[in-house]
């Protein structure tokens, strides 16, 4: 599956350095491994004891709260969209980024289409697996689609309400 990363040169597919481990596969001693949420819960200590970064793949029904204490130990989290119209992972993303302070790569997988990118960026996703033609070009433009936003979210953009207040205060002072 082609992988795209925000900030990569326009339209470019980036290489995926992560080894996606089946639940019954042996854990290599080093390298970047990506495991399921179930595997993580079961083998957390062993995974952390090895050399090399660990990432976790979550189903959109997995409780992200269970990862709150480990966000600084994980370098990748993959959130899944079983269909593009199933929006549960948007909430997971905002909780991971906003509430638990996760700083690593946050990847969207599954039904990931270019018309959702602007929403995904606002919720804190920064990498994307997509088979859609033109996805990379769309990603490069996605941040400029809307120069105004109404909600404060994890992307740190100032919503219109805040900008209005600032403008008013400048006028007053």
């Amino acid at each position: 599956m082609p992988l795209y990363r925000e900030g990569a040169p326009s339209g470019l597919v980036v290489e995926d350095p992560w080894l996606r481990l089946a639940d019954d596969a042996a854990v290599p001693a080093d390298g970047m491994v990506l495991v399921s949420f179930a595997r993580w819960r079961e083998a957390r200590a062993a995974l952390l004891a090895r050399r090399g970064p660990v990432g976790v793949v979550l189903a959109n029904t997995d409780p992200v709260e269970a990862l709150a204490a480990d966000v600084s130990r994980l370098d990748l989290m993959v959130l899944h969209f079983p269909k593009f119209s199933d929006g549960r992972a948007y909430s997971q993303a905002r909780l991971l980024r906003g509430r638990f302070g996760y700083q690593g790569e946050l990847r969207a997988s599954g039904g990931v289409l270019q018309d959702q990118i602007a929403f995904m960026l606002r919720c804190g996703f920064d990498s994307f697996e997509s088979e859609q033609k033109g996805f990379g070009e769309a990603l490069a433009k996605a941040r400029t689609l809307f120069s105004v936003v109404y909600q404060p979210t994890e992307d740190g953009r100032s919503p219109a309400s805040l900008l209005r207040l600032k403008r008013r205060n400048v006028l007053v002072s």
């Binding site: 199933d86 929006g87 948007y90 909430s91 959702q116 929403f119 109404y150 219109a160 309400s161």
Partner: peptide, 13 residues
Amino acid sequence: RQWSTLHPEFTFL
């Protein structure tokens, strides 16, 4: 209205 317009988290409820 403003809060809900293009709310990134709640467009695929």
